[in-house]
Design a protein around this nucleic acid. Sequence first.
DNA 1: CTGAAAGCGCTTACAG
DNA 2: CTGAAAGCGCTTACAG
Lengths: 359, 359
Amino acid sequence: MARSTPRGRTGAARAATVKDVADAAGVSIATVSRVVNGAPRVAEETKSKILKAVEDLNYVPHTGARSLVTRKHDLIGVLLPDIHGEFFSEIVRGVDEAARRRGLHILVSNITGDANEDARVVSALRGRVGGLLIMAPDEGPDPLATRLPADLPVVLMNTRGGGGRAALMIDNHAGALAAMAHLAATGRRRVAHIAGPGRNIDASERLRGYRDGLAACFGGAAPMILPGDFCQTSGFAAGRAIAAMATEDRPDAVFAANDMMAVGCALALSEAGIRIPQDIALAGFDDIPLAGLVRPALTTVRLRMAEFGRRALARLAGCMDDPDSACLEIEAMRPELVVRDSCGARAAPSGEEAQPLAL
Amino acid sequence: MARSTPRGRTGAARAATVKDVADAAGVSIATVSRVVNGAPRVAEETKSKILKAVEDLNYVPHTGARSLVTRKHDLIGVLLPDIHGEFFSEIVRGVDEAARRRGLHILVSNITGDANEDARVVSALRGRVGGLLIMAPDEGPDPLATRLPADLPVVLMNTRGGGGRAALMIDNHAGALAAMAHLAATGRRRVAHIAGPGRNIDASERLRGYRDGLAACFGGAAPMILPGDFCQTSGFAAGRAIAAMATEDRPDAVFAANDMMAVGCALALSEAGIRIPQDIALAGFDDIPLAGLVRPALTTVRLRMAEFGRRALARLAGCMDDPDSACLEIEAMRPELVVRDSCGARAAPSGEEAQPLAL
DNA sequence: CTGAAAGCGCTTACAG
DNA sequence: CTGAAAGCGCTTACAG
């Protein structure tokens, strides 16, 4: 007795299989498989019979069974650090979009930065995913990358020490350099830097850009580095420290390793009556939404994270299709300077001073 | 010839299987399976031999093959709307955490709000996931929920018209009511509302809370509703509109349907020289990070989205374990009022007025 | 153009 | 406590 929704003994619906479709269409399961997978050389009439049965039975192939025989997985593991909530959704959106275009799905998990814990996560993903996208900006050169299963295509995103793996980097150094060059071009002479957490690759590359910018655009001026941790609070503290300096020691510009700290710094400076940008120009990094909302809006460096995710997935898909292709290349994505009025030249209209700083 | 890393002809590594492990340990594949799955009644010695082989060969079970025979999937589909970038990462974090504790993995995908497109996404997930977590606050009562495959456990998150499905809601109405009550308690008499997009369930529930709050705490005062779309710009426009009113017509409080609009509104009000909270008190919804950064900090309503995600997954896991359990229940999570100084009572120290509003 | 058959890697009664 | 065997749903040469 044929039933359109076959049921098991418990009453829970059982999903239709190739067999069900084959029976309903009066063909063999081989032919059903061919049609479902879009193989050529199937009679038009047969095809439509099968398609109808698929529709009627609401048939969806069991992907596990399929991957068992094809030895392929259409699942991509995406491992992102716990902290990057800020960019998390944009990256995931980009990856998902690119994946869907290729008929792939993404399996998302957080990694902690603890190498053992993270290795366990990766291991749990093997035998389940066809490839891995990993972003671990806080890890040292050793841990994750070197422990990855050799048989798994991997693209590292903005992660240190690829160990010969394909990698897509953010060119933080170039971005920082651009910010420094802009500060120099608008007439600033002495730029302080609010650094990010030391082990973070973004932070250290931005710091390196700051130092090189000093050499390249500020005649090798001495660095002035304030510690920070990417959080608003640490930027605020740095701003306080700057405000506490004797006027002649104060920098006339601050380049913060990210926007959150730049905002914190701006808050502290303005509380101390220091004018932005007249007294101190301010530049950040990331172009978070807030950067455009504060007044004066933040000059910053922007990276399109969704595009970053799309590209990373494209790379990975390439590696999966052709494992012998150039999967070892390291590619970098260049961020873009976004100039806003927090970086205005010193010669601002004097009328502006009366305006309250609306941060 | 035994090899610890078996390779196929192309040189690509082939993953070890139960067979490989069984051979290496000198036992049958049945026993390997038992050990790997932690079955009882296996001799200690046998177990350790097998565990060693698993370790040596770096064996990980093929989950597809496993799910083929167990008829279970350890994958959970998580469908989130494109827009909710703000909360995306927090929800995903919570779901992932709860999933990992249960040995589950999550498959994340964006949904668009287009019912056909979304139904396709759901359909692609069948035969691959053991359950679905869906958040579709922008869909009408009909589309997704009613088209879900009957055989798939589903928990709807903050989504209309569950069609008898399990649901976890955000009690936006209660949150809005709390905000209104607070405004009344601090002495406000006339509260305007900046509404969110009409079709969004959060927006409409918050609006309903506003109306009911008017009835309950403001003696049934007439509503004053300004349109908005959850974006900062629309809040700004609403603020402009309020500033343009004759002073005697102006509200002395604004309850915005979300924080982004509240910030935009504050910006416009302060540009017009209207003082917050002295002239107009301001309350938002969501407690985004920015809410605590603006000055005066925003009074708002907070929901712990990670906790929301954790709970949703727990519900789903329950449905998956026992399909006959109370899977139809609708549960609501109550948000919490966060009082900050944007809602200060009118009797503020007069010295404060001199301070620039640092938004 | 279509079908019968083998086999992917795994788990699970069933014997013993 | 352990093994031989069947079978989960699917794809893919191999025939025809």
